[in-house]
Every structure is written in C-alpha cells, then in structure tokens.
Computed example of a mutant assay.
Amino acid sequence: MPRKTSAQRLRAGHILADLKARYPDAHCELNWSAPHELLIATILSAQCTDVSVNRATPALFAAFPTPHAFARATALEIEPYVRSIGLFRNKAKAIHASCCLLVEQFGGEVPRTMDELLLLRGVARKTANVVLSNCFDSHVGVVVDTHVDRLAHRFALTNATTPMAIERDLMALFPQPEWGLLSHLLIFHGRRACKARGGDCAHDAICQKYCSQARSKAKTPTAPKALSAAKKSRAPIVKKVARKSAPRR
C-alpha cells in the first residue's frame, strides 16, 4: 500500500470522526435479507440509483427466492423483473450466470473471499467489497463508487485516477476495521451534502473543513451590482432645450 505520513493519517482520523458524529446510522441503502440478495442488488446498482434497485428487487426476489431458483430460470425470464433498470438485459445475464456458478461451484452459497467472488459474472472489486463487508463483516478493501471517488478527491485523500489506486490510498489512511463503515459514511455525505451537482457543500460544516469544492466556492467573489442599480445612483441629466426664435417676416 502507499506510504502515508502520520499527519495524513491524523487528518483522515478527524474526517472519520466528524462523519461518524454526523451519520451515526450510516449503512448500506440497498434492501436485502440474504447474501445472494445483496450480491444481486449490487450487480443491478451499477450505473443506477439504489432507489431504483430497491423498487425492482421485492418482486424479483419473490419470484426467485434462492440462487437455485435463479439458476433454474433463464436470463429472459429474469428480464421482466429488472426492465426498469438501466442495462437490464446484460444485468439479467450476469445475475443468471452468477447464480449458476453459485449452485455449481459453491453449493448455492455466496463465497466469502475476494478471489472467489471475482469469479462471478458482473462482479468486480466494488461489488465484492460490498458483499464481504456487509454480509460477512470481512473488511479486505474499501468500496469505491462514484460518491467515494468524488469525496476522496475533494477531501484530499487521494490524487489517484483509478478505483483500485483510490482504494489503496484509502486503505493506507484508515484502520482496517473501519473500511466498511468508511464507505457508508462517504456515500451518505456524498448523497446528502457534498453532491456532484446542485449541492450546498459551501455551507456544510464538514465540507468547510475538508472539501476543496466548498473552499473554492467560499473564495468566489460576489457578482457586481446590477447595472440598473448603478444607473439609479447617477444624477439625472437635464437637457437644455433651445428656444426657437420667431421667424422674420
């Protein structure tokens, strides 16, 4: 992992403490009741909001309650339940293929190691970290989604440009037992305050302390007064009208 100074780790600790105080209930916002459900929900969440996934999964999990049920179905039979989600055809294929492998190779159980999870179709490190952390309390990495990526840069926790490099920077800064909670805290703050667009982070106390975006907004000079206001301050100009002389006769 990258080497970090004690000052960098101390600052990271302050960020973590402030986020914990702000969001004591930070958690995964995907709805699930079994490891395979979180696995499938996370596959569906790629380039899609958790809200959209949570709308689709109740009917999906009712129709296919186990990995065996998904494996017995076809991708075409899964598609109608996820049609409201972007890239639904590819995701239906990934869900079916993953559940087939769960049944064939893992006895219908979700594996508990990173290497085994990465064998599943549609599963990369982000999805594997979500499953391991939330289902098995196994913290082998940090979930790096769009919110974690954005806040890690704004809070000067990384200069990296790839998810793996960002993850390694975060792993080097924060204690391993906190890696799972860290991602929840950053995601909560990214969704509620430090948004990509239209957020109010310039007025948020945590962002004012750590976020480069908030500081840049605070330094932006106020707009000049409207031209109409300037015009009002000017003294009126009185035009002199020359009197016409009577025509000579």
Results as ranks from 00 to 15, higher is better:
residue 211 C to G: 12
residue 5 T to G: 14
residue 74 T to Q: 03
residue 201 C to G: 05
residue 209 K to N: 13
residue 6 S to M: 13
residue 198 G to D: 08
residue 117 L to V: 11
residue 42 T to N: 05
residue 63 A to C: 13
residue 97 A to L: 11
residue 61 F to S: 09
residue 105 Q to K: 15
residue 165 A to K: 15
residue 247 P to H: 05
residue 26 A to L: 06
residue 103 V to K: 05
residue 213 Q to C: 08
residue 31 N to G: 09
residue 205 A to S: 08
residue 141 G to C: 09
residue 14 H to D: 12
residue 33 S to C: 12
residue 98 S to F: 03
residue 163 P to S: 07
residue 156 A to K: 12
residue 67 P to G: 04
residue 88 F to W: 01
residue 191 R to W: 01
residue 40 I to H: 00
residue 182 L to Y: 02
residue 245 S to P: 08
residue 148 V to E: 01
residue 93 K to I: 09
residue 215 R to C: 05
residue 145 D to I: 08
residue 25 D to W: 11
residue 166 I to A: 00
residue 59 A to R: 15
residue 89 R to E: 01
residue 23 Y to V: 05
residue 230 A to W: 14
residue 58 P to M: 09
residue 18 D to A: 15
residue 97 A to W: 00
residue 191 R to D: 00
residue 164 M to P: 05
residue 89 R to I: 00
residue 72 R to H: 12
residue 215 R to L: 13
residue 188 F to L: 06
residue 238 V to K: 06
residue 53 V to S: 10
residue 13 G to S: 12
residue 110 V to G: 04
residue 40 I to A: 04
residue 72 R to F: 00
residue 11 R to F: 07
residue 92 A to T: 01
residue 191 R to I: 00
residue 153 H to N: 11
residue 209 K to M: 08
residue 4 K to C: 10
residue 161 T to G: 06
residue 145 D to P: 05
residue 218 A to P: 04
residue 142 V to S: 00
residue 99 C to W: 02
residue 158 T to V: 09
residue 218 A to T: 06
residue 226 A to T: 10
residue 48 C to F: 06
residue 194 C to N: 02
residue 177 P to H: 07
residue 69 A to G: 02
residue 149 D to G: 06
residue 149 D to L: 13
residue 126 K to I: 01
residue 203 H to S: 14
residue 114 M to S: 07
residue 145 D to T: 12
residue 112 R to S: 08
residue 168 R to A: 12
